[in-house]
Deep mutational scan, measured.
Amino acid sequence: MTFKLIINGKTLKGETTTEAVDAATAEKVLKQYANDNGIDGEWTYDDATKTFTVTE
């Protein structure tokens, strides 16, 4: 399955996707991606669209 991350950061905005077997696995990968890029904020997840959003 494809999961999307929408980034609403102070210095970085955009989106990325990852392939994962489930939402929990995708969340780990996407949170690591955000952490690697210095993004720390509030996370939400929409199961209907398989989209995570992080807002700083």
Rank of each mutant, 00 (worst) to 15 (best):
V21P: 11
I6K: 09
N37V: 15
T44V: 11
N37H: 13
T51D: 01
V54D: 01
G14R: 12
K13W: 10
N37L: 14
L5A: 02
D47P: 14
K13Q: 12
V54Q: 01
W43T: 01
L30K: 00
K50E: 03
T25Q: 12
E42S: 10
T49Y: 06
K28W: 12
Y33W: 14
G14I: 15
I7R: 02
I39L: 07
T49D: 07
L12C: 10
V29W: 12
T51L: 04
A48I: 15
T44H: 12
I39Q: 03
K28F: 08
A20R: 03
K13V: 12
T2K: 08
E27K: 07
K13I: 13
N8W: 13
A34P: 01
T16G: 04
L30W: 04
G14T: 14
D36R: 09
A23V: 14
N8D: 07
N35K: 11
N8V: 15
K50D: 03
K28L: 11
V54L: 12
A24D: 12
A23G: 05
A20Q: 11
E27L: 15
K13N: 13
T2P: 06
F52W: 07
G38K: 09
T18E: 04
L30C: 03
D46P: 00
N8H: 09
T11Y: 14
K13F: 12
T17C: 07
G41C: 02
T49V: 07
T17D: 06
D40A: 08
T16I: 14
T49K: 08
E42D: 14
E42A: 15
K31H: 08
D40S: 09
D22R: 03
L12G: 13
G9W: 09
D22T: 06
N35L: 15
F3R: 00
K4D: 02
A26H: 00
T53H: 07
L30Y: 05
K28M: 15
T49I: 08
L30N: 01
T2D: 06
V21E: 11
K10C: 08
E19G: 05
A24C: 07
F3K: 00
E42R: 08
F3C: 01
A34E: 01
Y45R: 02
I39V: 13
W43C: 02
A48N: 12
V21H: 15
K50S: 07
A24L: 13
T49E: 07
G9R: 05
G9S: 11
K13D: 06
D47F: 09
T51Q: 04
T16L: 11
A48G: 10
T51G: 02
T44Y: 10
T16F: 13
V29K: 11
Q32A: 13
T17E: 11
K10G: 13
T53Y: 10
T55F: 09
T55Y: 15
K50W: 07
V29D: 07
V29N: 07
T17R: 08
D46A: 04
A26V: 02
K10W: 12
G41E: 01
T49M: 08
Y33P: 00
G41V: 02
N8F: 12
V29A: 08
I7T: 04
Y45I: 01
T44N: 14
L5K: 00
K4E: 03
T44C: 06
K4A: 05
T2L: 13
D47N: 13
N37D: 03
Y33N: 02
K28S: 11
V54H: 01
D46V: 05
G14Q: 12
T51V: 07
T18Y: 09
T11A: 13
A26G: 04
A23F: 15
T44D: 08
D22N: 10
E56D: 09
G38Q: 09
K4I: 09
D46S: 06
D36C: 05
D40M: 12
F52Q: 00
T2V: 13
N35C: 07
V29R: 13
L30I: 03
A34T: 06
T55M: 09
D40G: 09
G41Q: 01
M1I: 15
M1Y: 13
T55P: 01
T55R: 06
I6N: 05
G38P: 01
L5H: 00
K31T: 05
T49Q: 08
W43L: 03
F52D: 00
A48W: 08
T51M: 04
I39Y: 05
G38S: 08
Y33E: 02
K31Y: 06
W43G: 00
E15S: 12
F3H: 02
A23Q: 08
A48D: 12
T51W: 02
N35F: 12
Y45S: 01
E15T: 09
T55D: 07
K31W: 11
V21K: 10
G41D: 02
A23D: 06
T17S: 15
T18F: 10
E42I: 14
L12H: 14
T25P: 02
F52Y: 06
Y45G: 00
L5C: 04
G38F: 08
G38R: 06
E19Q: 14
T2N: 07
K31F: 06
L30A: 02
T44G: 07
L5R: 00
T16H: 14
T11C: 09
Y33V: 05
I6V: 14
E19K: 15
L12S: 10
E27T: 04
T2F: 13
D47I: 10
K31G: 04
G9F: 15
T16P: 03
D22Q: 03
G41L: 02
K31M: 10
W43K: 00
K10S: 12
Y45K: 01
T17V: 08
T16S: 07
T25E: 14
M1F: 15
M1E: 14
E15A: 06
T11K: 08
T55S: 09
A23W: 08
N37C: 05
G9Q: 06
K50V: 04
T2W: 12
G41F: 03
T49H: 07
T55H: 11
D47L: 07
E56V: 14
D46E: 09
M1G: 12
K28C: 05
G9V: 15
G9C: 07
Y45Q: 01
I6C: 05
Q32I: 09
E15G: 06
Y33F: 14
T18W: 10
L5P: 01
N37E: 11
T55N: 10
K10F: 15
K31I: 07
K13A: 10
D22Y: 03
V54I: 12
K50H: 13
M1V: 13
E56T: 09
E15M: 04
A24G: 11
L12N: 13
A20I: 03
T53S: 06
G38Y: 07
A34G: 03
A23C: 06
N8R: 13
W43S: 00
D40Y: 12
E42V: 15
N8I: 15
E19V: 15
T51K: 03
D46K: 03
A20Y: 03
K31N: 04
T53E: 06
T11F: 11
T44K: 10
N35G: 12
N8E: 10
G41N: 01
G9K: 07
A26M: 02
L5M: 05
D40I: 13
E15I: 04
W43P: 00
W43Q: 00
D36G: 05
Q32L: 09
T55L: 06
V29Q: 14
T55I: 08
A24S: 11
E56F: 07
E19I: 14
L5V: 04
E42Q: 11
K28R: 14
N37A: 13
A48L: 11
F3I: 02
Y33I: 06
N35D: 14
T25C: 05
G9E: 03
T25A: 12
A20C: 06
D22E: 05
A34R: 01
T16D: 03
T18S: 04
E27S: 07
D46M: 04
T25L: 11
T44A: 08
W43M: 03
T11Q: 10
I7P: 01
D46G: 02
I6Q: 05
A24Q: 10
T11V: 15
F3M: 01
K31P: 00
T2C: 07
T55C: 05
K31V: 08
I6S: 04
K50R: 13
I39R: 02
A26L: 02
